[in-house]
Design a protein around this nucleic acid. Structure first.
Lengths: 167, 167
DNA sequence: GCATTATAGTTAGCCGCCTAACTAATTGTC
DNA sequence: GACAATTAGTTAGGCGGCTAACTATAATGC
């Protein structure tokens, strides 16, 4: 995604302000900062996962499987929970199967379905990645107090609930 | 990007907490919420721009050009300011040229360079999009008070400055 | 002043995501 | 019980990013 590296200076802002007088510059900066930081942190996470041979999509599938009692789920359900299309999930699972981190088990009850199951290797991979992931998330977020962190989440949730104004 | 639709419930969390006792769940939820809201708002912005026949990348190029005194810049400079590769910028400019929103002007001083210039159509397109964009950003952010908005930005900036811990 | 190095831009090919169209299996309806 | 509608998963093709390799021009250094 676009990195939005370059927020405008005051001279540029006044040019825009003249042409578009209704703009509330403070709000725009807040909005762009949110997009930029979200995007930057996402790519930082990608880099981290890449050093374990994973990417966000595949990693998230492993986590979703670990959440299940029997370590199994179906492609459709995984797609919905991960927020990607079924077609994309097919690709993610293909990759994970190739690396033997999950297996496809043909369904007995409904032969349209597969069950995707986390393998021992898949669990090992998570056991390798997750402690380090949690440690780093902890480090990252430690610049905010617990109270600030809670406030951040509540503000973000408010914004998300209000995102309909853009549609 | 991954939508992370599904944050875990307490039963699942306790399973993860047992296996990965060092995890600070609150912080993880804050982190994931930030990624998710950033990603959601970005796709909401994409949808908005799409209704004007634009996408984030191309729209951002137009804005960067409008910032310039003479409405001109070079592909390299645009790429750097937009935070994309030069190769990507070539594609963005190709698209904008095709729609006559910008033109390529061959450089006289340095014949390796092009100058990319915003056309009258390009300016019109911005004049069409930007007021509505500003209005909606204002609406979106209005759920936060001015004070909260400032706090949000300062927290996000802190996190961004601390993102090195993940590398 | 010629060879080396650096810079600007494009092209080629990869990746992850998407939608639309397709196959196979199940469910529902008369 | 046959046929229509629905559902699960895959495949095909498109799009916007990326890196690496390439061409053309400019700058540097002996």
């Amino acid at each position: 995604m676009l990195q939005l590296k370059d927020l405008p200076d005051s001279k540029i802002l006044s040019k825009f302000a003249k042409r578009y007088p209704d703009a509330d510059i403070e709000r725009v900066i807040q909005f762009l900062t949110l997009l930029r930081v979200g995007s930057d942190l996402s790519s930082v996470l990608d880099n981290f996962l890449d050093s374990y041979g994973l990417l966000q999509g595949r990693w998230w599938v492993l986590i979703l499987l670990m959440r299940e009692q029997d370590l199994m789920s179906t492609p459709s359900s995984l797609a919905e929970k991960a927020g990607v299309s079924r077609a994309t999930m097919t690709g993610l699972i293909d990759g994970l199967v190739k690396e033997a981190l999950v297996i496809r088990v043909t369904g007995v009850d409904d032969r349209r379905k597969f069950h995707i199951k986390l393998t021992a290797s898949g669990q090992s991979k998570l056991d390798e990645v997750m402690p380090e992931y949690y440690r780093r998330v902890g480090d990252l977020m430690s610049v905010l107090s617990n109270e600030q962190g809670g406030l951040l989440t509540s503000m973000l949730t408010k914004l998300q609930n209000n995102s309909g104004v853009f549609k």
